[in-house]
Design a protein around this nucleic acid. Structure first.
Length: 569
DNA sequence: GCCGTTTTCGGCCCGACTGTTTTCAGTCG
């Protein structure tokens, strides 16, 4: 059993205990343990074998025993008993907004409600409103919640979310009562997908803003409306929360509503250790005026932590010792490598793509059309590829564009780990991206071996979209990421950060440790059109979440350094 | 269930909004 499965079980235990009405602090202990386990980068089995599990924060005697049992036997009687003691339907009821463990317990005990379906019927018959602590409105809200559950429970890609929320922010900025507007929450932290939108406003006159916000065309329904906080549902089905505070509290509120929750909890603990209390309005009893987030971090003995890093993945410790990296920025990008043209499945010609890159001010652009096995993507046969190489040479020589073009390929990794072109072809290219496009269902061992073999090919430059995941659509294929990262480093290969908003692969959670081990990154938009080049911005967001600096990223290097690197690799 | 240079017992982050109540519990972020 691997770490992720154990994390899932610990979280499950927490939820089940919550439903049983267990001591909330006990419940929290399991959640904390699960969360802290996520941050463990060592192999869990070795840690367990060396009896060091209890050294992980939040893991004491009881949870250590449970993890050990799971590692050794793949099962946990305690967990099985817990599951058997609770009707599984109660878990899905937890997803109904407004229903928590207490209310669900009442429903279960008084009305024998064990599923969403039974809950719906009880509401329709008017039984729920008669329960103590429930009423007509609660009943109506439950019915409403069930109706929307399926439709609205989905998360949204960060990129799509920004498209929805930006126009709202722009309109808010124009209201005369609004002094300042900022997007907060997971959107500000640039998480790959978001569940809702948080917007924060500074104003001394909130009522007109709330009236405006809750009455616009983009509002499907108003969930809550108060003088400082309101929640609406957008027509697209996503919840948007707006919070209005006086200007002097804006920094505190921004910090608080940016989160993450885990990061905020750590900050509060640090404040408490220093004899303060931190909330979304102030750091008390400190009298000194703290205006910005930087001021607040400083008062806590920390350097400023960029929102992307606020995940409690070691950023607090680093900020205490002034050890945070100088994160890569959009303006550091000097070109991109993984792009397609009409030669394979792209929508724009080679020259249109180069012109697009030139307009972005880039020094270079890499062309990597599909290889011959990718029939579905009109992959190039050897002859067409050689023609393209010639064409690129001619354009470069003509100096028609300020942007230098590199000849590459996105070469399929065949089932056995061989590449789709022979070495004689590959060696004529400036670089080679290798990717898996077929046979996704191999088992973990075989897939890992396959990819490592491709990384061992001397002509391979970088690995494309490592896990093949499509966010909110397709799970990653099975592979051992640790082994692949190690193999890439051992062979001097780069791993791509595919910046397509649906991919963002390799995941940011893996980058911090990988870069410390020496892995280099290439932020690649996987553009299939000129507009697609813009995806590099989503890639930079994720690179920042992965603690990457411009030195870690090949395509933030100047042309001369890139040329030198590619000629030597 | 975890944790401890005040503690091995008694805490554990904190505030707004809703809907139910007549002063507050539950839920949420």
């Amino acid at each position: 059993m691997d770490k992720n499965e154990i994390i899932a079980i610990l979280e499950d235990i927490a939820t089940l205990m919550e439903l049983k009405g267990e001591n909330p602090f006990k419940v929290r202990a399991y959640r904390t343990a699960a969360r802290n386990l996520e941050n463990v980068e060592e192999d869990l089995e070795s840690v367990a074998e060396e009896n060091r599990l209890h050294e992980i924060p939040g893991i004491g005697k009881a949870i250590e025993e449970k993890i050990t049992t799971l590692l050794q036997t793949d099962q946990l009687p305690f967990y099985e008993d817990l599951k058997n003691s609770i009707p599984p339907g109660l878990l899905e009821i937890l997803n109904v907004p407004g229903l928590g463990s207490k209310k669900i317990n009442v429903l279960y005990k008084k009305l024998k409600i064990t599923s969403l379906d039974k809950l719906k019927k009880a509401c329709e018959k008017g039984k729920v409103r008669k329960l103590a602590g429930f009423g007509e409105k609660t009943e109506a809200n439950i019915l409403d919640g069930i109706a929307h559950l399926e439709q609205y429970s989905k998360r949204t890609l960060w990129w799509s979310a920004m498209v929805m929320v930006q126009p709202i922010v722009e309109k808010l900025k124009k209201l005369k009562q609004v002094q300042e507007v900022k997007i907060a929450g997971s959107l500000r932290r640039k998480l790959e997908t978001v569940g809702d939108f948080d917007i924060l406003i500074a104003s001394s006159n909130p009522e007109p803003i709330m009236d405006w916000f809750t009455s616009q065309d983009f509002v499907e329904s108003v969930i809550a409306k108060g003088s400082t906080k309101s929640s609406i549902r957008l027509n697209e089905g996503i919840q948007a929360d707006i919070r209005i505070v006086p200007k002097e509290q804006f920094g505190f509120a921004l910090l608080y509503f940016t989160g993450s929750k885990e990061h905020s909890i750590r900050l509060r603990q640090i404040a408490k250790d220093k004899g303060y209390s931190l909330n979304e309005y102030a750091l008390t009893p400190l009298k000194k005026k703290l205006i910005t987030e930087t001021d607040i971090y400083r008062a806590l003995g920390l350097t400023y932590i960029p929102p992307e890093l606020r995940e409690n993945h070691g950023e607090i410790e680093a900020a205490q010792t002034k050890g945070l990296p100088h994160l890569i920025e959009e303006s550091d990008i000097r070109g991109v490598f993984h792009n397609h043209t009409t030669a394979s499945d792209g929508h724009n010609t080679l020259e249109q793509m180069v012109k697009g890159a030139e307009e972005l001010g880039w020094e270079y652009l890499g062309i990597a059309d599909h290889s011959k096995s990718s029939f579905q993507a009109n992959g190039l046969d050897e002859e067409s590829l050689l023609e393209q190489i010639d064409q690129i040479k001619k354009i470069n020589r003509s100096k028609k564009y300020k942007t230098h073009i590199f000849s590459g390929t996105e070469c399929d990794i065949l089932k056995n780990g061989n590449l789709d072109y022979a070495d004689e072809i590959l060696k004529q290219l400036d670089y080679v991206v290798v990717s898996v496009h077929t046979r996704f269902k191999l088992d973990e061992k075989e897939m890992t071996k396959r990819i490592i073999k491709a990384l061992e090919n001397p002509y391979t430059t970088m690995l494309g979209h490592m896990t093949g995941r499509l966010l909110l659509r397709r799970e990653p294929y099975l592979l051992n990421t640790e082994k692949i990262i190690d193999a890439a480093i051992a062979n001097g290969k780069i791993i791509e950060l595919n910046a397509n908003p649906q991919r963002l692969d390799m995941d940011w959670r893996l980058w911090h440790r990988a870069k410390e081990k020496g892995l280099k990154c290439s932020i690649n938009p996987d553009a299939h059109s000129v507009e697609g080049l813009e995806f590099f911005r989503a890639g930079v967001n994720i690179a920042r979440k992965g603690w990457l600096t411009k030195d870690d990223v090949l395509n933030a290097w100047p042309l001369s350094r890139v040329k030198k690197y590619l000629s030597q690799s």
